[in-house]
């Protein structure tokens, strides 16, 4: 208990005595996390969008013309239980004919004399909005195409492939930008902590003299780093929220995103917490990199 109090007070004293560098550390972390957060926000919304679009994606499966009714039943059952599939509609040859007649009453004469319906039976699948991984759809389509009882598979390939590509680019970009910025932030925090560390060399020497372990000596600095990081994370969250509100307000009337603008949403709570946790992690990492080298001196 007494130790904890000691640690917290030490961290607080250190933060106070180095106000300028503390501020720089917090701002850098905030900047890092804001940039990263913008990416995350975009990513989050594109993912959302994909979920919505996914629902409108239809895959049309044409079974072989001469398929036995038992096998057709098996096929339907198999598709219904597939996790990527939301709903399934069977359209028989006769249904297809009826539909054609309804839609194109003037063209009906074309079909006269053909006797049986010339249209193939089909299965229309809509995709589950949840867990909308494009891989799942790709896999499904792949499987269906090689299925012995299936003649042909048709789906709006464009949408899926384009979105898949965007998501892949974004993931890559986020990783790249995120790691560069994280490195910058860790460095700045490391410098901040190092400053504190150097001005308190005397104190550390005293702690060494009375038998403090390296862990004991470094805990206040770890707390300091964590506080810096958490403050940076909180600040970044504030920036993002503000920026987000501004953005949605200004784009609402414009309808630039083809109606999707209203569907934009901010991070849910877990993601916000992750951002702050990210700040804390960066802060601790900065401290650890500083301390690792510095603590090896002797009395």
């Amino acid at each position: 208990m007494k130790r904890l109090w000691y640690f917290i007070r030490e961290a607080y004293t250190s933060l106070r005595t180095h106000r300028t560098s503390t501020l720089i550390g917090v701002i850098t972390t905030a900047f890092t996390l804001t940039s990263f957060g913008i990416f995350l926000l975009l990513y989050h919304n594109v993912h959302n969008l994909l979920g919505q679009v996914q629902h409108t994606i239809q895959i049309i499966v044409y079974p072989k013309n001469d398929i036995e009714s038992g096998k057709l039943h098996d096929l339907q059952q198999g598709l219904k239980t597939d996790p990527a599939v939301d709903s399934l509609t069977f359209i028989s040859k006769q249904d297809a004919l009826t539909e054609f007649k309804e839609q194109f009453p003037e063209e009906v004469y074309l079909l006269e004399g053909l006797g049986e319906s010339p249209f193939p039976a089909s299965l229309i699948l809509t995709m589950a909005a949840k867990s909308p991984t494009t891989d799942m759809i790709g896999n499904l389509v792949n499987r269906l195409q090689h299925h012995p009882d299936i003649d042909r598979v048709r789906y709006n390939r464009d949408w899926i492939e384009r979105l898949t590509l965007i998501i892949a680019y974004m993931e890559f970009g986020a990783l790249l930008v995120g790691s560069i910025l994280a490195l910058a932030s860790v460095t700045i925090i490391a410098i901040t902590v190092q400053l504190a560390f150097h001005t308190r060399q005397q104190e550390i020497e005293i702690l060494r003299l009375i038998g403090a372990t390296s862990l004991f000596i470094s805990i206040p600095y770890l707390i300091e780093g964590a506080i810096l990081g958490a403050a940076g994370g909180g600040m970044a969250l504030g920036f993002l929220r503000g920026g987000f509100e501004l953005f949605t307000q200004n784009t609402q009337g414009l309808n630039v995103f083809g109606g999707f603008s209203s569907a934009l949403e901010f991070f849910p709570l877990p993601l916000s917490l992750i951002l702050i946790a990210g700040g804390i992690l960066l802060g601790c990492l900065g401290t650890v990199t500083t301390i690792y080298g510095s603590l090896r001196f002797r009395l």
């Binding site: 208990m1 007494k2 130790r3 000691y6 005293i206 702690l207 009375i210 038998g211």
Partner: peptide, 10 residues
């Protein structure tokens, strides 16, 4: 200070 390091009670 040496006692805090050893975690003694207040």
């Amino acid at each position: 200070l040496p006692l805090i390091i050893r975690g003694l009670s207040s």
